[in-house]
Write a protein that binds this DNA or RNA. Structure first.
Lengths: 200, 200
DNA sequence: ACTAAAACAAACAGGTTGTCCTGTTTTTGT
DNA sequence: ACAAAAACAGGACAACCTGTTTGTTTTAGT
């Protein structure tokens, strides 16, 4: 009653627009759905519903599904790799320990979570890289950045074959994640981590 | 005119039915299209057209797209792994040489072909394994068979960590193929082959 | 305060999708 | 030879998806 008198007319919705927030929510929802179902199996209206956004609003920020997909790769997939891989690698005191930590942390999270959805970069790469050159270019830059950062760290200890070793690390991680996906458990990651340690 | 008189009644098509052949053609076309575009991006009528078969005939042999997909995995993807991986591994005189041969043969074929479509098992796994349990079970049996055959061969030389090494070989192959797909060249496979040799 | 642009809502249109249905032809069993 | 079953043809159909269009509300510039 008190409050109603305080705001008799100011009952106006007073909802504020938040374009950046809406855009971010769409990106989050799309990233999550692409990760679970894949790009082609996910509809734009499904993304809009999941983000709590109307189709018109989504179309305003992303004129096409492809534009949304490219934005997801650039602004979410890249960030995910940066957070779970590159940052731990840079702050570790050796490439060996970094790799074991990342592999085992991922494996533990997968087992704890109870479901393995796979690596976002690889999921989208195997689905889209061959068909669409634009997606391929975007994904390739992520892989390049990934391997380059890894090679820089490895070079501190094994200057000889740093580039080749970096490729090997990324490859065995991607493949281990694929095997983990069919088995729905993190064990393959731990096995590959053990073998990678012998290599470094 | 001449010919019309020669074949007034024997004009009957005399075409013979070939259910097995038709089924096989559908499987081949589906395998090829799934490999190029992915499962979800390929339509059943596209498969029918590619195989030169009517939609009705296709539906007679495969009542649904999922049934067709499962048949492709069981009867084509499994055979592809058997041919390009398991058979060379068994007939090689050592696991080391077998792995180098397979990796380099694949890499050479990719570079010669000019396009990298990726490994069929991995393509379908990353696209479908998480969403559909039936596909996952089918794909998992292929991975298991793959690793088991590889471990048997490795055990001849390194009895200790054969299972773990087999996982590592399959993983690094799968991942190397993913990187090869974004770069559209076979080089990553060769790099991983070199590192795998040091491990065995 | 007023106007132009941006942000959002909601329904629409053209094209595709996977599936099924009804006939017709071919093969098989007896 | 004849009936039953399998193999095949061709189209129909309803659901869906993407992209667009039109109209309303909110923000920002001046």
């Amino acid at each position: 009653m008190y409050e109603e008198m305080m705001t008799p007319r100011p009952e106006r919705p007073r909802r504020k627009n938040d374009p950046a927030g809406l855009r971010s929510r769409v990106l989050d929802a799309a990233f999550c759905l692409f990760q679970e179902q894949g790009y082609n199996a996910t509809g734009v209206q499904e993304i809009a519903a999941s983000a709590g956004v109307t189709g018109g609003a989504l179309h305003h920020h992303f004129p096409s599904k492809k534009a949304l997909g490219l934005a997801v790769i650039r602004e979410r997939v890249g960030a995910a790799v940066e957070e779970t891989w590159l940052e731990p690698v840079r702050s570790a005191h050796s490439a060996r320990s970094a790799i074991r930590e990342v592999f085992c942390a991922l494996a533990a999270e997968l087992d704890r979570n109870g479901s393995v959805r796979g690596c976002p970069v690889n999921n989208l790469t195997l689905e889209l890289a061959f068909v669409d050159p634009d997606f391929r270019a975007e994904l390739r830059s992520i892989f390049d950045h990934w391997r380059r950062t890894l090679a820089t760290k490895i070079r501190e200890e094994a200057p000889a074959d740093a580039d080749r070793l970096a490729t090997m690390v990324v490859a065995s991680y991607s493949g281990a994640m694929a095997i983990a996906k069919v088995e729905q458990q993190g064990e393959p990651l731990r096995q590959c981590a053990t073998e990678l340690e012998r290599l470094l």
